[in-house]
Design a binder for these strands. Sequence first.
DNA 1: TTTTGAGTTGTTCGA
DNA 2: GTCGAACAACTCAAA
Length: 472
Amino acid sequence: MTPVIFWFRRNLRLHDNLALRAAVDAGRPILPIYVSDALDAGGASRWWLHYSLSALDAALRDHGAGLAIRSGRPEDVLPRIVDETGATAVFFSRRYEPDARAQERALEKALDDRCDVHGVDDSLIRHPKSVMTQSGTPYKVFTPFWKAASRPGEPEEPAPKPSDFETTAAGLESGDIDALELLPTRPDWAGGLRETWTPGEDGAFERLEDACSIAADYAEQRDRPDLEGTSRLSPHLHFGELSPRQVWHDIRSATPASGQQGAAALLRQLYWRDFSTYLLYHFPRLPNEPLREEFAQFPWTDDADSLKAWQQGCTGYPIVDAGMRQLWATGWMHNRVRMIVASFLVKDLLVPWQAGADWFLDTLVDADLANNSASWQWVAGCGTDAAPYFRIFNPVLQGKKFDPMGDYVRRWVPELERLPAKFIQEPWKAEIDEQKAANVVIGEDYPAPVVDHGEARDLALQSYRAIRKQNA
DNA sequence: TTTTGAGTTGTTCGA
DNA sequence: GTCGAACAACTCAAA
């Protein structure tokens, strides 16, 4: 019997996979395929993808054949496979980034009269077109979006993995995940990633269990990078190893009544994920251009040394450096610290937010075009729903407030390990004797601050006033 | 059409 | 040490 093709994209799971359910219902053997293309960018993401594909391949083998691997443009590759196998249909789950949508349109066009094409909306709680203001325009502010998106009620119940399907290679060569060269070789910088993460559906469910256990305390502890107060589900959600429906319902049902309020803050984050994708869908220039147009005139300094100091975690501000080093080592950074380091790059160093966004896309295992772009625009103050520009994070205060003992800093900036808590967020304030006693001389063993935050803040506010004046 | 209340995550200054 | 106001007015979204 001729097969149907299941084109896996950012939905690398078998449970609660609506597109897969539709393919199974076609009643034919399923040819599962992954096509690696130019959208598979970002070093840390590619590392994750390798293992997620491997896990999926193993899970599919239980049903017959594993995952066929190809690379190239899906709109070229898939029609060829349709011709070779006589497949009667192609199923896939839709994506909402501009390039991914263009890819879908090209595929639909290429397959137009050759076979059925079924794009299924599966990765968001609400489709971007289904949440609009009364005047028919897209929401720009989160809270009204969230209210409107929540109005229809709870997300759909997740569906279990279908048990009744058969996969086939349809006589094709399977291809090789290794040949995609997703893993780093020289040097192998992925040691910290391997220690931190378990990509794939099984790893995702383990992490989801952990997330359920912290959900009740989420509202209270989510801002503390020194604790394990966040879900760490972002990469699993990005690759679709979990659906937002599954996360929502598992957290909801695992949390006792007394903890529902704390968990609500976590569930709300799922709507932030929807909202970012929604913004990118309706404002496709989001990754590149400031949505508040006056920011195109902003006098960025764009200094290469500043950017490098930030990337390497050598700014002299411990909480910033801890975050950047956590990112480099593990492919992830605590959300509170992401805001601190982003504010520092954009407002203290006056480096364009796009440079920070590029770095994050390359180094985060959860790198997601929509979340990343929307969040950087938010921090930079140029998004539609942005923090006021004068809201400039003070890295010392933030450190004292959210890493009160300095444990987070000590973990990621070991030079400062022996410094007492009093100085850990501002080590330059320690007398030289105290520095020596802690085995760290500022300016030698750990950098002096690359900028003075007070001066940098004044300069940032001045620059902001300048573009306001220009546009007045 | 006009009005009105509200807007994820902050900091600093001066009383 | 604590508290409220200023930062700078703006835009959004619904009534």
